[in-house]
């Protein structure tokens, strides 16, 4: 008998607590800074062009082979406005195939691709599977419009010696210098 009364007491105290429900879609839970959504490209606002040069490293390393990248000569380089000789011409990511493994972000030499940590990359319901193939404009949109305010761009730990991204090496040296 006492056990049942204790159970009822616990149940009542649980009922009086604030519920944990976040009423989607009117309210949305705040996604963590490191939330790993689908990959999206970053826009360089200083030079008004994408960071991506079309080097195809990400496409080569993609385990599911969901990316198609082509590059072209950068007209802004000829005009002297940008240090990038080549710029991306076409970029397709098939979100239906992407498994969000983060490898493209890890291998990118130009820090041009990043995992989208906003709700937009989670709300991807479409009526037709073809609409999940994102082209360059769709991929640049979150960054260009400012929706992607704070992407997670920490350099990945020096997992692969020999070709760690340059930024990570510089930061390591800075930390080492600071410790001395």
């Amino acid at each position: 008998m006492l056990g049942i009364l204790r159970a009822l007491g616990t149940v009542v105290s649980a009922a009086l607590r604030k519920p944990a429900t976040v009423q989607y879609p009117t309210e949305k839970k705040q996604l963590p800074h490191r939330a790993r959504g689908f990959p999206t490209l970053l826009w360089d606002f200083e030079r008004d062009e994408p960071f991506c040069t079309g080097c195809q490293v990400c496409a080569r390393y993609c385990p599911t082979d969901c990316m198609t990248v082509t590059m072209r000569d950068n007209p802004k380089y000829a005009e002297g406005k940008s240090p990038r000789r080549k710029i991306v011409d076409k970029f397709f990511i098939d979100y239906a195939r992407c498994m969000r493994c983060d490898i493209c972000v890890e291998v990118c030499n130009f820090d041009a691709i990043v995992m989208d940590n906003t709700w937009r990359s989670v709300e991807l319901s479409r009526y037709d599977r073809q609409e999940l193939v994102m082209d360059l404009d769709a991929l640049l949109k979150p960054s260009r419009t400012g929706q992607l305010k704070d992407p997670f761009r920490d350099a990945m730990g020096v997992a692969h010696h020999g070709w760690a991204p340059r930024k990570a090496e510089e930061e390591k040296e800075k930390v080492a210098a600071a410790e001395e």
Binding site: V11, A14, A15, L16, R17, P19, A20, T21, Q23
Partner: peptide, 13 residues
């Protein structure tokens, strides 16, 4: 609603 509250959620809304 009551059972929802016990289970830390809201019930029909």
């Amino acid at each position: 609603k009551v059972i929802g509250r016990v289970q830390n959620r809201l019930g029909p809304m």
